[in-house]
Design a protein around this nucleic acid. Structure first.
Lengths: 139, 139
DNA sequence: CGATCGTGTGAGAATGGTTCTCATGACCAG
DNA sequence: CTGGTCATGAGAACCATTCTCACACGATCG
């Protein structure tokens, strides 16, 4: 086996803009949203480039991906340590949370059933205080 | 408030075939897979109908949906009680598992952060014994 | 048993997110 | 400064899913 042969990652205006935008936001956003936001702020970037930049960031572990209920991918700047998410399904507000017990539970259950190379995925969805019905009669 | 106005659910050859097929399989399958399987077995059903039947089954709580990493939806006949899944990412084999602690944890964490109307989603992915590398030098 | 109403079906078109293509532009090492 | 390589962008291609709409069929009632 030879070198992994990973291309050099260049720093460009576009990639910088995508990461900077993600740093300002505190919730999960779709690639389409991010593209529109960049366009609004005048920092125009091609849609394909937004997708490529996000993919690179995910590969580098700087960004987390999440699939919404309709299959659309949403991205968020996250800490590199393992964690789960508490997401507001209305405004996207997200809190990173840890749950050590579930880590052990997942490993144990997987082992009991003969599963190896285990990963788990745990997300909690709810309505945050600002979006709670009653704060403003929405609908 | 009047009656929910849910249309009567008819029993047709196509819906019966979809549910019967799901009953025979023990892993998550995409709508496309199910459509192809039905076609192979001669029980031809239109693709749109497969989607509609699956949606109806999900609404009735007879089938669970899961989004694969690339956003494709996968369906499986599941028990109606709340549970999580241990899924083989190679063959799709799935085991239903329960984890009472995580239920309480999710509720507590959500409450701490002022989130209401909480749901959670927990899936464990791994490689089952039959698919383990070494059982057969695949690929 | 047979008419009737309303739901289900299917082929193909439409939708929409994501990826690919490829000619052109921009990093950055030397 | 210059070259080679990687990045960009506009649009096409892709593909899962949904929609459209004319027609078929299930259930119910007479």
């Amino acid at each position: 086996m030879s070198a992994p042969e990973v291309p050099v990652r260049r720093q460009t205006r576009q990639r910088t803009a995508v990461l900077a935008l993600l740093d300002e936001l505190d919730g999960f956003r779709t690639a389409q949203d991010l593209h529109a936001l960049l366009r609004e702020r005048g920092d125009a970037v091609g849609l394909a480039t937004v997708y490529r930049a996000l993919q690179a960031l995910v590969d580098d572990g700087l960004v987390d991906v999440l699939r919404s209920e309709d299959g659309e991918a949403a991205y968020r700047r996250c800490s590199p340590v393992h964690h789960h998410h508490l997401v507001c399904r209305s405004c996207g507000l997200t809190v990173e949370v840890a749950d050590p017990p579930v880590e052990r539970w997942a490993a144990r259950v997987a082992a009991e059933h003969g599963f190896a190379d285990v990963q788990h995925q745990l997300e909690v969805f709810g309505t945050c205080r600002s979006c709670a019905p009653g704060a403003a009669a929405q609908r």
